[in-house]
Design a protein around this nucleic acid. Structure first.
Lengths: 345, 345
DNA sequence: CCATATATTCTCAAGGTGAGCATAAGAGGG
DNA sequence: CCCTCTTATGCTCACCTTGAGAATATATGG
């Protein structure tokens, strides 16, 4: 028979508290953080989702609500233990949305020291709510420029420039909030994140990307970091390839916001329209036009007013709304308004 | 250690020939067809995509181009062999797009008798190009109506009616071409497809769907077919849960058409705009407005004219176009125009 | 009452979409 | 050569959505 295979289940668990998107992580070896994860038990676990939920509960005490499968990663040596005789590990990544509750640390919990981190600490270039992030000008753009120039011949240089411009909105190209994974993988390839320097694999697993061929999920990580450039300093790292999973999840979530009413998984049952907007903005990493946002949400039939008003906030009090769960069963069930992304690439 | 796990790789391989979407299948035991598939070899296969490509090549001789991961299914007893002591099998499904070439059957090929089937033979209710399919009026609507009425109390009946109406565009609801998987799973649940009767599982694997909770991929197949209704007659069946994979792939493909230029993977390098339109229509299962389709494709910058014209087709000859591969590297890289789906639910 | 702060409503221009008319350019029959 | 049929291509127009911002409403604190 063939060699043993192990299935690892990973959860990217996102909440939004105080207008900040947060990631549930656990302390791994050393000081680095890791996503909650654990192996599938082929005999005990009836479904993948149940197994994932059990691991998350055991490691963090958090109960998952909305869960969505993201991607299955299966490249050899993705898990470094494979190099030292460990089994081949396939990793199935999930995105989960929860309302953040204080982590009950008490009890004789054998929890792995869970913490809520800030998503944008790990991917600081993704937060454009206060305008173009400084790290883009100061660090990323110059480093990418050096990388582009060292491309070799004319064709290679121009291909590099195109990628850098389109993914990071440089050279006049517009910023596309959903290309989170593209951006992270480019930074990895260029050697600008810590993960690049972790493992120089003996053979490159990067499939020769045929020009013009659409490769949806390059699934080619860890590839061969060119071992040039910096020593990896952009953003906080996570264990293994977990930061890539976070990037994948954030991109998926940003896309989903537009066509499914998923934000409400993150909100309290009653909320003001501004709170709703701030939550969307936190995830999208963008500021939205307030009046137009209201218009979309209201005439989209996504919410209904409860007669109640919010207590004093120093201005006119806002009405509290609730999510109309009916829309899930209705005609369109669209998402909440996101701008500019008419035909997102 | 835990029990052995096997990884099965399945490919839903789609081509469009003569304006008909086609599915590459192989003859399985008996007369049923199956998707090309094979197990991952943990020692040999470096990546999942390479392993998949190798299996498809071995079983059909077809070389894959565009490949996209769809979903990983891991419910216990999804593979009936697990009941008789077989290992737990996880199934990773892929969508692949190819240009159909005649299947070279000669040579000492150990190919598993590959054939190109018609997608809509398996999912006949999905083809609306000649108007609302007759099978909907004649078979599906009445059967769903019986199912709705047998729902029990008022709440259950109304929940059933909503699902039936929204998924199948009954009772005045609009048809949503992307809900292919929803529709197939409803037919399965109601017992209208052959697969429903194959295995009555000892325990229901269907997770109790909390009302209002968004379950993206119910991954709950095989659940407990209510063992009522017909004996399964709608459309041609496929082996195991392969027809569900096809449904999943078709839904994903229809969605993708709108925002990524994937159609061109299915076309010859040079094509007329009508050929392009017919290919999109074949996949979308809809007729499109000719002039508007041209407008979108052309001003979207997706194609460029080669000066050449097509030979005599009984009318004014059409110009031949080619795909502008540049757009993949460009601003938006949107898809080809699909109507009515402004905010697809 | 005033300034300030936030909420809510309304208007308007620009651009995209759905539908259909009009014209161009081939083939074939008389 | 003219007429008809067929398909391709170009253009118009009404309607809707979107982006942007002005104007108005209702609270709090002096």
């Amino acid at each position: 028979m063939s060699a043993a295979i192990e299935i690892a289940l990973n959860a990217v668990i996102v909440a939004v508290t105080e207008e900040e998107p947060r990631l549930l992580a656990v302390h791994a070896a050393g000081s680095t953080l890791a996503l909650p994860s654990g192996p599938l038990d082929a005999e005990r676990d009836r479904t993948l989702e149940l197994a994932l939920g059990a691991w998350v509960r055991a490691q963090t005490g958090v109960e998952l609500g909305y869960v969505e499968q993201l991607y299955t990663f299966g490249n050899r040596y993705r898990d470094p233990r494979e190099r030292s005789g460990g089994p081949r590990v396939l990793s199935i990544a999930y995105l989960a949305l929860v309302r953040e509750a204080p982590l009950a640390r008490e009890a004789g919990a054998n929890w792995a020291a869970p913490v809520w981190g800030h998503c944008y600490d790990f991917l600081p270039w993704e937060d454009w709510r206060d305008g173009r992030p400084a790290i883009l000008e100061r660090e990323i753009a110059p480093a990418l420029e050096r990388w582009v120039r060292s491309g070799g011949d004319r064709a290679a240089t121009s291909a590099r420039r195109e990628r850098a411009d389109i993914f990071f909105g440089l050279g006049g190209a517009p910023w596309n909030g959903e290309r989170v994974l593209d951006r992270f993988e480019l930074l990895y390839e260029v050697g600008l994140v810590e993960e690049s320097n972790r493992d120089a694999s003996p053979q490159s697993l990067t499939p020769a990307s045929a020009p013009g061929q659409v490769t949806e999920h390059p699934n080619a990580f860890p590839g061969q970091p060119p071992a040039g450039e910096g020593s990896g300093r952009l953003g906080l790292p996570l264990a293994l390839d977990h930061r890539r999973l976070l990037a994948s999840a954030l991109g998926r979530l940003r896309g989903k916001l537009r066509y499914r009413p998923v934000v409400f998984e993150l909100l309290a049952p009653a909320f003001t329209l501004l709170q709703l907007q701030r939550t969307v903005e936190a995830l999208a990493g963008l500021r939205l036009h307030k009046q137009n946002f209201r218009r979309l949400v209201e005439q989209g039939g996504l919410v209904e007013g409860t007669g109640k008003l919010e207590a004093g906030t120093g201005g006119r009090p806002a009405e509290l709304f609730r999510f109309r769960r009916d829309v899930l069963r209705e005609r369109h069930a669209a998402g909440v308004g996101l701008p500019g992304l008419r035909a997102g690439g």
